[in-house]
Design a protein around this nucleic acid. Structure first.
Lengths: 189, 189
DNA sequence: GTCTATAGGTGGATAGAC
DNA sequence: GTCTATCCACCTATAGAC
């Protein structure tokens, strides 16, 4: 029962994959139009300008992230296992030698609107809050072992995965990401 | 005894700081020209096209990196102290809420020339080889304490600093970088 | 080595027909 | 909602004077 997507959603899907590949300043409406099979004017109908498109991209990405971690929370009890699934989430884009939208947007940040910047900060905050909660709970329950504040651990965990994406991309070598991700997990046991 | 820089070097200086701010696809020759105080045609004289400029940027950055770590090696014996200085190196751009050139280039990678891509991989390889050497030596000498391969530790260390740059930039909060960097160091003691 | 002038292309964006 | 047609700003790059 695959839902037929409307144009706006198709545009966002295509735009996201392009941004994750070439960055927000590396593509044009023409690139999206060609892939979606429409004209650039049609994109402007749904997203009047590139700012609107950027804001829509990040807010949709945030929503999808929330549902992804919610799914992890409902399907998994063990905190270590939750973190492992989180690393799989971040490893997804790496298979195509891309980075997650957040990482890409964070480097393009200086050229984007204030609203997009806020959206990015909110996305990363959501990441960090979830990680901190899992870290804290995991330690209390004895699944995780680390020293210092859970907040610091959360930052380190997220930063490592982001950097791991960049390294895998730079070397075109997925194993670099996996190596770092596995090291992160094993350091917590 | 400040050496008077020639135009080519002034162009590279300006270009690098701009790229570290807005990325390789976020600026034009006009931006550089205005800051340097010349015309775009003069830039084309020194760097015929943007590819040439990108390649020159990354190779100069590589050379500067080598001299920076050479300086660390000659001034410092203690491996832990070497790593601390390495984190300061990566913390430099963060003060202006920028990322190092390597991180910026790595996200823009898909739109750049093969030579630039190779240059980036070589830069990161130099980073990793130095880190691995310091990690290995530090453990043998008793200054550092970690489990597993030094190569994996090197990857984790570098990835963390790269991600830390992104987080500091995204939140416009230098302390996020410092927190992660200090955590990295303290985890090795 | 740097300039003016300009070519040739592409970018984002809009007007108006259908 | 999507199209054609088009505008204008900006981009990279080159030619040729100085």
């Amino acid at each position: 029962m695959t839902k037929i997507k409307n144009t706006a959603e198709a545009i966002l899907d295509t735009a996201q994959s392009i941004v994750q590949d070439v960055g927000f300043n590396g593509f044009s409406y023409a690139h999206i139009a060609e892939k979606v099979g429409i004209r650039t004017a049609s994109i402007h109908y749904h997203f009047p300008n590139k700012e609107d498109l950027g804001e829509a991209l990040i807010s949709r990405y945030h929503r999808n992230f929330i549902s992804a971690i919610t799914q992890i929370d409902t399907q998994t009890q063990n905190s270590l296992e939750k973190l492992r699934k989180f690393t799989l989430l971040y490893g997804g884009p790496v298979q195509d030698y891309c980075t997650c939208l957040g990482v890409m947007i964070s480097t393009d940040l200086a050229t984007l609107s204030g609203k997009t910047r806020e959206g990015l900060a909110q996305l990363f905050s959501a990441n960090l809050e979830w990680l901190e909660r899992v870290m804290d709970q995991g330690r209390r329950e004895g699944y995780l072992n680390f020293e210092g504040a859970a907040n610091v651990q959360a930052h380190q965990f997220l930063a490592s995965l982001q950097g791991a994406q960049l390294l895998a991309r730079s070397f075109r070598d997925v194993s670099r990401f996996n190596m770092i991700a596995e090291g992160l997990i094993s350091a917590l046991t």
